[in-house]
Design a protein around this nucleic acid. Structure first.
Lengths: 214, 214
DNA sequence: CGACCTGTTGATTCTGCTCAATCAACGTGG
DNA sequence: CCACGTTGATTGAGCAGAATCAACAGGTCG
C-alpha cells in the first residue's frame, strides 16, 4: 500500500492554493506526507470517512463501480487540492492513485469547521461543474471542457500534462477509450491542440477550446 | 416575484428531515415562509450567496444556461430539503420554482457551522449521485434512476408525483423531451411503471427499476 | 372558438459504441 | 541482440441508440 513516510513542514506552495486551505493547515497539527504507489487505494468504498487528504504531488481519481462492472470517475484530484469529503461518515466513492503520490492527512479540529465548510463547498462546485460537462451533448465539447479545466487547475493556460491515461479520461467523461482517441484526433485536426507526447497536450487555441466547452 | 409572506413556527415535519436540519433550525431565528409563483427566480446566477433556503412546499430547479442557449439542470429540490450552498460567496447556478413554492430563509450563525457543513455534504452527495446517473450509457437507465431517486425522496416506494414537466426532466437527465416520452413509454411497456396522469407515476416494479438504475 | 402549450408519435439522420485489427513502447528471457 | 508477450493508444467497419425534424393530439386560457 504505502511505500514510505516522511515528515516535512506544513506549507506547500502551489499555484492555486485555496486561502481556506492554509487556514486549515495552521489549525491542524503538522502531519506526515505518506507516499503511495501507482493504483494503490487511499480509501475504499464503505470505509469510515473523517480525515481529509491533501495531495503534495501525484494525482488521485475518485471512483465508483457499478454492478455491471463499469467504473464512473467522479473526479480527479491534483497537487494542492483536497479530497475526502463525505456525508454520513462513510465514503461513497473510493480513491486511487494515478501515480506515485504524496498525500498529507488532515484531521480538522472542531474550530476549523469554517475552513472545512468552504473547502467542502469547493468540492461541491467541482462536482457541479463536472455535472455540466457530462450534460453536454457531444464528446468534443466534453473533451474540450476537460482540457480547459485541467489547464486552469495546473496554472498553465497553454499546456496540459495528463496524469491519467485514456482509460481514466473515458470513465471520467462517460465515453469509451476509442472515442477519447478519436476526439483527441479531431481536436488535433481542428488545430485546437497538439500532442507533444501522449501525455502532454499543447493547447494551440485555448479560447477556441473554451468556446467549444461553453 | 414573491406573492405573500407568512410567519409560522419553525419545525416542519417531513418524512425524511435530516437531523442536522433540525439542529440548524434551532440555531437560526425563526424565519418567515415566503411564497413564490411558478417560474419565479429565488436567486440568479452571479447573485451573492450566503443564506440557505428550506422548501416548505412546492419544488425548485437549479439551473445553468450554456452560451448556445441550452439549459442544464443540476438538481431538483423537494419539500424538507435545503439549497443555496455555494463556494466563494457567489451563486454559480440560478434557482427557479417549479410550482407555487413556499421557502423559508435560513441565516446560519457562526456556531451553526457544524450542521451547515453536514448539510453541505448532503448536497455534495446528491451532486455526485446525479453525476453517476449522467455517466450511465442508456436513457432507460437514467430515467429509472431518476424515478427511484424521486420515490425515495418523497417517502413513497410505489409512486412518484412529478413536480416538473418533461422539459425539466430532459434538461436534468441530459436528453431531449421526445426521448423522455419514448423512455417513459418503454418503461410502461416493460410493466415497470403506470401513468395515473402525466404527472403521477405508479412504480409497478420498484426493485426492477432499481436493478435497471443499478 | 382559435391560439397556445405540453406531451406524444413518426421518419430520418448521425453520433458514438461495439467489435476488431493494428501499432508503438517497454520489459523479459533466451 | 532479437523474439516474444504485454500494455496503452490509435484506427477501421458496422450497427444501435438517441437527436433532429416534423406532425399531431389533448388540454387550457384568452
Amino acid at each position: 500500500m504505502f511505500v514510505h513516510t516522511s515528515h516535512a513542514p506544513a506549507s506547500p506552495a502551489f499555484p492555486h492554493t485555496h486561502p481556506d486551505l492554509t487556514g486549515l493547515l495552521t489549525q491542524c497539527r503538522p502531519s506526515a506526507v505518506t507516499l503511495y504507489n501507482v493504483d494503490s487505494v487511499v480509501y475504499a468504498q464503505g470505509d469510515a470517512a473523517g480525515p481529509l487528504y491533501l495531495i503534495a504531488f501525484g494525482a488521485v481519481r475518485l471512483c465508483r463501480l457499478t454492478s455491471d462492472g463499469r467504473r464512473q470517475i467522479s473526479g480527479f484530484v491534483l497537487p494542492g487540492e483536497i479530497f475526502g469529503f463525505e456525508a454520513r461518515g462513510e465514503h461513497h466513492f473510493y480513491a486511487e492513485c494515478l501515480d506515485a503520490t504524496g498525500i498529507r492527512v488532515l484531521r480538522p479540529s472542531g474550530d476549523a469547521s469554517a475552513s472545512t465548510l468552504n473547502l467542502a463547498l469547493e468540492t461541491l462546485t467541482r462536482a457541479q461543474e463536472h455535472l455540466l460537462v457530462l450534460g453536454r451533448r457531444t464528446v468534443v465539447e466534453r473533451m474540450a471542457a476537460f482540457l480547459v479545466d485541467l489547464a486552469q487547475r495546473q496554472g498553465d493556460e497553454k499546456s496540459v500534462v495528463l496524469a491519467m491515461q485514456r482509460n481514466d479520461i473515458a470513465d471520467y467523461l462517460g465515453m469509451t477509450v476509442e472515442t477519447v482517441s478519436r476526439v483527441i484526433g479531431k481536436l488535433k485536426a481542428m488545430r485546437m491542440i497538439r500532442l507533444r507526447t501522449t501525455r502532454e497536450i499543447e493547447l494551440l487555441n485555448p479560447s477556441g477550446l473554451m468556446a467549444l466547452s461553453e
